[in-house]
C-alpha cells in the first residue's frame, strides 16, 4: 500500500512515524536523494564502501603483479641496467588499475545491491507512480510486513496526511 506526499519533509516525517509504529518492510520513493530518508525507513547495512575498497585492493595487486610477472618471470629484459623488479616504474599502471578496480566495483556493486537492472516492479503498476521521478514523494508499506492489515494500514497511512493513499497490485 502506498501513500503520496507533496514534498520531501512530509515523506521524511511520515517514514519516521511509520517506522516508529512498528512497520519494517517499508520503502520511500523520491525524485531526488533526500537526506535521512534511507535511515528513516530503517536502512542500516552499509557495505558498499567495503566492496569498493576490496575492488581497489584487488585491482592494484593484480596490476602490480601482472607487471612483476611479465618483467621478472615471463620476459626478463635488461633495460638500462635496471633491476628486473624496477617497481617505481610500475607505480603508474598499478595506480590506474587500483582506480579501475575500485570504480568498476562501485558501479557494479551499487547496481547489484540495489537489485538493478530490474525493469519491472509492482510499484510501477500504480499509474500515479510515474510522478515519483518528477515531483511527488511516495511511502510504501509492503503487504509482507508482519503488521500489515488492509484496513488498519490504510487508516494508519491516512493519519499521516498524504495527498492520496493507493493500493499497489502485485
Amino acid at each position: 500500500m502506498m501513500a503520496e506526499f507533496e514534498n520531501a519533509d512530509a515523506v521524511l516525517e511520515a517514514s519516521k512515524k511509520t517506522y516508529a509504529a512498528g512497520y519494517r518492510r517499508i520503502d520511500a520513493f523520491s525524485p531526488f536523494p533526500v537526506h535521512g530518508l534511507a535511515e528513516a525507513v530503517g536502512y542500516r547495512k552499509r557495505i558498499l564502501p567495503w566492496i569498493v575498497l576490496a575492488g581497489g585492493v584487488v585491482g592494484g595487486l593484480a596490476g602490480f603483479f601482472l607487471q612483476y610477472w611479465v618483467s621478472v618471470i615471463e620476459l626478463p629484459l635488461n633495460v638500462g641496467g635496471r633491476p628486473l623488479n624496477s617497481w617505481p616504474s610500475f607505480i603508474p599502471v598499478t595506480f590506474e588499475c587500483t582506480i579501475l578496480g575500485a570504480a568498476l566495483s562501485a558501479v557494479l556493486g551499487m547496481l547489484a545491491l540495489n537489485g538493478l537492472p530490474r525493469p519491472n516492479h509492482p510499484v510501477f503498476n500504480v499509474p500515479r507512480f510515474e510522478r515519483a521521478t518528477t515531483n511527488r514523494f511516495f511511502l510504501l508499506i509492503e503487504s509482507r510486513d508482519a503488521q500489515f492489515d488492509l484496513a488498519g494500514t490504510r487508516t494508519f497511512l491516512e493519519s499521516l496526511e498524504p495527498s492520496e493513499v493507493m493500493d499497489v497490485e502485485k
Binding site: S15, D27, A28, F29, S30, P31, F32, P33, V34, L37, A38, A40, V41, Y43, R46, L48, P49, V52, G56, I99, A102, A103, A106, V107, G109, M110, L111, L113, N114, L116, P117, R118, P119, N120, H121, V123, F124, F129, A132, T133
Partner: peptide
Amino acid sequence: AMGWRGSAIHWYRYETAYLLLAGLA
C-alpha cells in the same frame, strides 16, 4: 534506466557510489 524507481535505499547507495566515484576520479 534499468528499472530505477527512486527508492530511498537505492538513493542512499547511489549517492555513496557517486561520491566514491568522484573521489576516485
